[in-house]
């Protein structure tokens, strides 16, 4: 089971929207049983980012963890969300 962290600045607003979109997508793809979802704020997660297999963020993250983080902003606006889901899928299957 992969651990997927969804985070934003406050851990309540935009990450909630992204969480809803990801949940729906996982259901549509039949991947629900393969992923456990977490939600939090960036500040609380920067130091244990390695606890998760996949990290999606709607806010900027520090440079040292940048490589690990998928930009989730397209999931908010819907512009380019397919690419984001593609990236997440790749990580789930990795």
């Amino acid at each position: 089971m992969k651990k997927l962290m969804i985070m934003c600045g406050s851990g309540v607003a935009t990450s909630t929207v992204v969480m809803g979109k990801v949940k729906q997508w996982l259901a549509d793809e039949g991947l629900e049983s393969q992923v456990k979802l977490y939600q939090s704020k960036v500040a609380e997660e920067v130091n244990h980012i390695d606890d998760y297999d996949i990290v999606v963020s709607t806010t900027l993250v520090p440079d040292n963890i940048k490589d690990k983080v998928i930009n989730g902003v397209p999931l908010l606006t819907g512009m380019g969300s397919d690419q984001v889901f593609e990236e997440i899928k790749k990580e789930i299957e990795a």
């Binding site: 909630t16 929207v17 809803g20």
Partner: peptide, 16 residues
């Protein structure tokens, strides 16, 4: 906010 998912999602939808 976690209880406002519908509102937030609808708002984002409107933006599109």
């Amino acid at each position: 906010a976690h209880k406002q998912l519908d509102m937030l999602q609808n708002l984002m939808e409107l933006f599109g």
